[in-house]
Design a protein around this nucleic acid. Structure first.
Lengths: 234, 234
DNA sequence: CGAAGCATTGAAGTGCGTCAACAATCGTGG
DNA sequence: CCACGATTGTTGACGCACTTCAATGCTTCG
């Protein structure tokens, strides 16, 4: 299960055999959770981190009025809350967007391997910094791109990230989000998210049905998104 | 000069006398830069990091069409590009919003103190994670808050952050940004940013003239912003 | 003094939100 | 296996927050 995590790391940095062994030892247990379950609540004290082995998670921030923004999506291989290792509590919830399998990594084991393998400390620090870079790109999308461009951008980003861990098909991938959840990622209303998908369809860029995303014209999609993947540090 | 940086760190974590000495040794030189200068360009290879001693910096991301989003503001005491220590290149520019004084910190000195003082490695990791939390709050603002609420939120956040390093007055602070730059922080056009300031004025919440921000009604401002400072981890 | 940047204002347009209804699909229990 | 409500997706009409375009005065600074 943890192979997908190693795959992701190795796409960006070198991991020695010894370090790999250390990483293989950090998961204390694995848990299955159902879609829509809240794994971590904002503010709650943390002593574990979660590696996602299967399924999709979201970081979600709520406003008193009930409006909600998803500030990040996680796919297999991602640590969902590695920043919680240093922060000890989160400023957002972590929720399951699909049925998931997660590995529970006690903070003291992280403490342990980062002390024993200072290079791994750097690797995981790096990893939280890539998360942050993805977040900055989201801010750029939310602040400056149109709904159409924003959605196209998200689809492009996920295509790359899923490819890294071997979860994309050549022309698309499983996309388990409802349109409501997609809207929350993009800072749109449900209704407008729906119309935006239809516009992407109408332009023959993308198909989306039965939780399957098909990319009909990737360079067209990247064009609309003004997609430049360098922020992903691949 | 570095005292302001220590002040900021100590507001969130403990720093021993020994660690303090180590930190005092990281700055190789100090440089003055003029407003509007670009200190770091997106993509360029880095071997130094910058601590801001005086003035304001921004992280800025450009789109091909010329639109621009500021994804973060930095004030005295902040590392502007600590994430560059692990990433080695940035996904955004770093630009001076006012005349600034920065400390140049070679990456190998950072390497050095984080190896010698593993606790400092944790402190600086933590620090980049707080940056990321501020970014998530920005995504929430850009995705869900109205222009008025967004601007109020920014003013509230900066009031707290400036207070931490002793740079706020009781009722406000120096605010060197032009309205254009403010607009770029908030994902608004210049014109609408101007009208939004006027609305805050009209409601007697805030005054802004001659680069001075005066907060006339802080709890009113926080109300409009739906401001909850827990994401700042103070 | 003139030029350039900055703040302000007005008028008109539009992208996205809101409200409301309905269709399609899904999960569940009888 | 069907009946049912609940969730998800779709559509239409209308409204508004924000953008766009354009002009004008104000400040700053060489």
């Amino acid at each position: 299960m943890i192979n997908v995590h190693l795959k992701k790391l190795r796409r960006r940095v070198e991991i020695s055999a010894e370090e790999e062994q250390a990483i293989r030892g950090v998961v204390a247990e694995t848990r299955s959770v159902r879609a829509d379950q809240i794994l971590i609540r904002s503010g709650e004290e943390l002593s574990n981190a979660l590696i996602l082995f299967e399924g999709w998670l979201a970081r979600s921030k709520d406003l008193p009025g009930g409006d909600r923004q998803v500030t990040g999506l996680h796919i297999a291989g991602d640590f969902a809350d590695l920043h919680g290792f240093t922060l000890k509590r989160l400023d957002h919830d972590v929720v399951a967007l699909s049925d998931c399998v997660v590995g529970v990594v006690p903070h003291d084991r992280l403490q342990d391997i980062t002390e024993r393998h200072p290079r791994l400390a750097r690797v995981y620090w790096y990893s939280t910094n890539v998360d942050a870079a993805i977040n900055r790109e989201l801010a750029l999308s939310l602040g400056q791109r149109s709904a159409l461009s924003r959605m196209a951008h998200l689809f492009c980003e996920l295509y790359l990230r899923l490819t890294v861990v071997g979860l994309a098909r050549l022309d698309g991938y499983d996309f388990p989000l409802t349109q409501r959840e997609l809207a929350e990622c993009l800072g749109l209303t449900l209704v407008h998210a729906n119309r935006t998908i239809q516009e992407l369809r109408r332009r023959s860029l993308v198909e989306l049905e039965n939780r399957q995303l098909t990319i009909l014209d990737r360079s067209g999609l990247e064009g609309i998104a003004e997609f430049d993947p360098s922020y992903l540090y691949l």
